[in-house]
Design a protein around this nucleic acid. Sequence first.
DNA 1: CGATTCTTTGAAAACAGTCAATCTGTGTGG
DNA 2: CCACACAGATTGACTGTTTTCAAAGAATCG
Lengths: 174, 174
Amino acid sequence: MIEQAGVVKKLRKHQYLLQEGDVWRYNAFVCEGCLKTYRVDDKGVEHILYFSFANRWAGDRESLLSGKPSKSNIDAIEDSTVLLFNIENFETIKKQIPAFKDLATTLLERSFIASQNRIHAAISQTAEERYFEFLKNSPQIANRVPQHMIASYLGISPETLSRVRKTASKSNFH
Amino acid sequence: MIEQAGVVKKLRKHQYLLQEGDVWRYNAFVCEGCLKTYRVDDKGVEHILYFSFANRWAGDRESLLSGKPSKSNIDAIEDSTVLLFNIENFETIKKQIPAFKDLATTLLERSFIASQNRIHAAISQTAEERYFEFLKNSPQIANRVPQHMIASYLGISPETLSRVRKTASKSNFH
DNA sequence: CGATTCTTTGAAAACAGTCAATCTGTGTGG
DNA sequence: CCACACAGATTGACTGTTTTCAAAGAATCG
């Protein structure tokens, strides 16, 4: 039964779903709210790898696949509801329902494509270009998460993002 | 028959497998040699998204999945041999051989994980840090492709990479 | 070799990050 | 309702990194 396979989990804002060092053994489907996946560098600065909104997955595939402790943290940036499948149940469902397996693969494929495009942006564009491309491609994120998290996601400092926005609003460059 | 499903294609150095604007309808398995997948920006500068060595795949999943013209180019940086499956044959094989399908998914999963780690490097590390992490994680690439392509892959200018190597060789910092 | 491509080097300019202070808005408790 | 704390955003001055442009050296290939 699918109803038994997943566990509904409610997360309050700022609550962790995964902490660095733990092994991740699940797949979490976001029903409501929003989570962020991020890593913390030696200076204590957060770098956001991924935002998970409703109808997206959250988790750490690397830890899941390798069985090793995660390098990432996941926590709720809004009160959120997720459906948590432990990996054994998830595999069982995939075996029982081929369409479910195919769906998982398709979503993975889309995530991979998005990653490639993000890599391209990161290695080829300036802070300003990345920000405006992000605004164009992901307005739903831009309108929902605080500015400093967008900066973190784009790999620029919050101050630089603030300045990019300022100069852009003077010239009407959007 | 698997023998009929794929076509052996030999590529000379500098020869294209895919050119920007074309629709990609294949999956290419690299048997020998090495290919690069890259995009060209408005200034004519190449940005390398991916190196495909023996036993890796080359292609453009985005174009394949969307049916739209590719934003990327793929060409051989050494004389290479690839096994080219057109997508219909590939899908047929996946249906006939579940293990083949699972293998494809596993490889995709690994590629996605690698992408996430590369995004993290790109948004959180300096040129120098990225270069030494790359050396550590991908020595086989580092020893095989010219330096300016590594720079392109890491998202730094060839001059900066040259300087990073120079300062690092003075202090014995590797 | 001669031609081309790749790498190195120097100097200047552009870009982005850091630090510190201030400003803004929000929500909480008295 | 006000005062306060807190988190987020902005601003200025400064520093540091990276790019750009130009030129010269080195390596490779036909």
